[in-house]
Design a protein around this nucleic acid. Structure first.
Length: 425
RNA sequence: GGAGAGGUCGCAUAGUGGUCUAGUGCGCCGCACUCGAAAUGCGGUGAGGCGCAAGUCUCCGAGGGUUCGAAUCCCUCCCUCUCCGCCA
């Protein structure tokens, strides 16, 4: 959600921002139309209510003074006003709901520093770390390595759940479990995040708060009337402080949570279907920050660095790209993706997406802070990023550290967690 | 799942149809007293909307209803606590 005052006073600037994202700007005009009407009706109704309240209050006093006749008169007047106001109130509720719908649909604006561009082709590589490992023979893809070493059982995953569900087996399961324990330790012990273990099912209000609803209903698994499986721990972590006013001295709040993640991937059917490239259930350590507005861009840089730190600790080559305005999506103000090199697949794969949402989510979720006693509450800036997602980390490790003898030599940092140094061989 | 109790302004409580524009205590802020502090006294102290402002409207878990008027009465739902049943 954007600041209503901003849309009212600078509609052209809002349109310009939406246009940079290559999204439909007509929603701004729609907002103005409904907002103007809403304020008019609201003011009329407020005045009618005020008048009716005045009569109502006088009734009590007149009764106390024993002026029964005058009281009856006031009663009749008040009722007439009330009846007249009923239509207006219905109209008010309709307009309020319409305004809310528009606000929830209106995209966030890109930060001025975000490079302009139409599609992902215009994203900008801002840095790379490490180098592509060199192999004497063509490196195998992780699905081949995993099958050869019995680390994954994809056919049985398809049998028990359907395509896109992975079963990790034996040493593969052990590695998988080691990965998220290692990452949680890294983010909490080294980078100072507070560990959170969240529920996997959340209510609708939480998904509206982060911006997954109403727009992305199709990608969510729904478990019950008002209960959805989380597509990422971002949802429960961000909503931890929904409808709360935080103390400025507690900011920046840094949370790290491990969770399973569930996504229908409705729009991506048939894409990246092999191995662990795109699956319906995966595991991830998510980082969420609640920041003072003036610090949020600094916090985005360090958040991205915290995500990168995991790859550095494991010695995996990666690059960081800055997402251009046309590819950034509706929610973000600025976004970096961290892409790990997957030598077997032969591509850089997104393993973390770090975003600053500014106040877009905090307005939806009503998360505010107070600078000092007596000050008006302001909306916090909220940021998040994966730190990191395990399937692509799992696959990058297999592919990057495969040995000529067919085994996989695990990075030093991981060995205490896994309990052995080599897969296979 | 069943039975009972309960959800009020940061916390604790009062309020069972009409000065409730929600009282009181604690906490917090300001002022006074003081060399300073404590104690004490006085005043203030929620959020949101509309409005240039004066002001006004909404919010007592959520939503609906009765009434001229609801924290208060009725209905539905949510949550918390106690007991029972079931259960990892």
């Amino acid at each position: 959600m954007l600041d209503r005052e901003l849309i009212r006073t600078q509609p052209e600037a809002v349109k310009a921002g939406i246009a940079r994202k290559r999204l439909d700007t007509s929603i701004v005009d729609e907002f103005s139309r409904v907002d103007t009407e809403y304020r008019k009706v609201r003011t009329e109704n407020d005045e009618a209510r005020a008048e009716s309240n005045r009569f109502s209050k006088s009734i009590g006093q007149l009764m106390a003074q024993g002026k029964r006749e005058e009281a009856e008169e006031a009663k009749a007047k008040s009722k007439a006003l009330k009846d007249a106001a009923t239509d207006g109130e219905e109209r008010e509720r309709e307009l309020e709901a319409a305004l809310r719908r528009i606000e929830l649909e209106m995209p966030n604006l890109p930060h001025e520093s975000v490079p302009d561009g139409k599609t992902e082709d215009e994203n900008v590589v801002v840095r790379t770390w490490g180098e592509q490992p060199v192999f004497s023979e063509a490196p195998q893809a992780h699905w081949d390595i995993a099958e050869r070493l019995s680390l994954l059982d994809l056919p049985r995953g398809a049998k028990i759940s359907g395509s896109g569900f992975a079963v990790y087996t034996g040493a593969g399961a052990r590695l998988q479990r080691a990965l998220f324990t290692f990452m949680i330790d890294h983010q909490t012990l080294r980078n100072g995040y507070r560990e959170i273990y969240p529920p996997y099912l959340v209510n609708r209000a939480s998904l509206v708060g982060t911006g997954n609803l109403p727009k992305f209903e199709d990608d969510l698994y729904k478990a019950d009337e008002d209960l959805y499986l989380i597509p990422t721990a971002e949802v429960p972590l961000t909503n931890l402080y929904r409808d709360e006013i935080l103390d400025a001295s507690d900011l920046t709040i840094k949370l790290a949570g491990y969770s399973g993640c569930f996504r229908k991937e409705a729009g991506a059917a048939g894409k990246d279907t092999r191995g662990l490239l795109r699956i319906h259930q995966f595991d991830k350590v998510e980082l969420v920050k609640f920041s003072l507005p003036e610090n949020s861009y600094e916090e985005l840089e360090s958040l991205t660095a915290d995500a990168e730190g995991v790859l550095q600790a494991l010695g995996l080559h990666y690059r960081v790209i800055e997402i251009c305005t046309g590819d950034i999506g509706a929610k973000g103000s600025k976004q970096y993706d961290v892409e790990v090199w997957s030598p077997g697949v032969g591509r850089y794969l997104e393993i973390s997406s770090c975003s600053n949402f500014e106040a877009y989510q905090s307005r939806r979720a009503n998360i505010r802070f107070r600078r000092a006693q007596g000050d008006k509450p302001e909306h916090v800036h909220i940021l998040n990023g994966s730190g990191l997602a395990t399937p692509r980390l799992f696959s990058a490790i297999l592919e990057s550290f495969q040995q000529p003898d067919g085994s996989v030599l695990l990075p030093e940092a991981l060995r205490p967690y896994v309990g052995f140094e080599r897969l296979g061989g």
